Simulated scan of single mutants.
Amino acid sequence: MTKSLTKFTKLSNGVEMPTVGFGTWQIPLNENFKSTIQTAIQLGYRHFDTAQIYNNSVLMGEAIRESGIPRSEFFITSKVWASHRSYESAKEAFEQVRTQLQLDYLDLLLIHWPASQGEPMVWQAQNAGTWRAFEELYKDGLVRAIGVANFLPHHLVPLLARAKITPMVNQLECHPGYTQAAAVRFSEERGMRVQAWSPLGRGALIRHPHLLRIAEAHGVTTAQVALRWAVQNGLMPIPKATELQHQRENLDIFDFELTPEEVDELTRLPQAAFSGLHPDTVTF
């Protein structure tokens, strides 16, 4: 059994999700996509993160079915894109993704990005309408957990004021050099678990001198240091990897521990490897 299969994070509603997931953003949609996913499954990954905008749900669903592993062992996350920011269109987006995946239910459904620009009353109403659809999907048993992505405190406050169900997850860009401490703290204080997307800073942290030094001290890779930092901070990282060795290394992060001093050093790094994607300035 792969070590990470025994590592789970419990959400506020009691649902357990594998702490380390597998990100599928920007994995090329070619003849190698399914083999990449199937290799990850063989290594022990069970939590896969996809999204409406990634356009890979059909291939993702095929890889899951062809694995021969029961559906119940997988934890599948998808996200509704910015083109579907309303009650009706959010439900349409969910049905589109579920049909493409050919699954009876999703384990986690997220609003991919908050509506956040223009007149506040308008974008707040858009987020609220989308969330109302999510709450109904959850109550109907079509999703096991619901949440948001890229929501900062000023997006969450008006959402929570109208919500009947508090989001269980907030997925944020989060890594050494871009910790989003205020958003993480705000989310956790309200019972949301934080998933870390781009936990390796889109690969830019692999050569960072601070991580190189710490990795050498532990006899591990810099990627493992960044992922271990996330886990020790209570985050759930979803790294992407297409090479077998990197997929294996990204799972193998539970046999060592960073010292409190090392965690603090990485937490205090000056801004580095930020994607540039901020929810208040993106153009989608």
Rank of each mutant, 00 (worst) to 15 (best):
T36A: 12
V157R: 12
F256M: 08
A226Q: 00
Y87L: 11
E265K: 12
M17E: 07
H246C: 01
N150A: 01
E243N: 14
L244I: 02
F74E: 08
Y54A: 06
P28S: 07
V194S: 06
M17A: 14
K79P: 09
E257R: 15
E95K: 10
H210F: 09
G21D: 03
F134I: 05
S86R: 05
V15H: 00
F74L: 08
V220A: 06
I253F: 04
H175Q: 14
D255A: 12
T99N: 15
E257Q: 14
S89N: 11
A93V: 00
A63M: 04
I146M: 02
E257A: 15
F254T: 01
K7D: 01
T221S: 15
G118M: 10
I37D: 04
Y105V: 04
V194Q: 06
Y45P: 03
E135F: 10
R132E: 15
T77Q: 13
W123K: 02
F134N: 03
Q171M: 04
W25I: 00
L103S: 05
L227W: 10
T179Y: 04
A161Q: 15
M121Y: 09
N55R: 12
G141A: 07
F274C: 03
T222D: 00
P120F: 00
I27M: 07
L235D: 06
G201C: 01
L244H: 14
E189H: 02
S72I: 07
L227Y: 09
T24W: 04
F74D: 03
W25D: 00
R193V: 14
Q96W: 02
T6D: 12
Q52N: 11
N250M: 02
F151K: 10
V143D: 00
G234S: 06
V148K: 07
E243W: 05
Q180R: 14
W131H: 09
P209V: 05
P153Y: 10
L152A: 12
P199Y: 03
A182Q: 13
S78D: 15
G147Q: 06
F74P: 10
T281C: 05
A133I: 05
Q195M: 15
Q96R: 13
A63W: 10
G129D: 06
P158G: 09
G61A: 02
L5E: 15
G141Q: 09
E257W: 06
L159S: 09
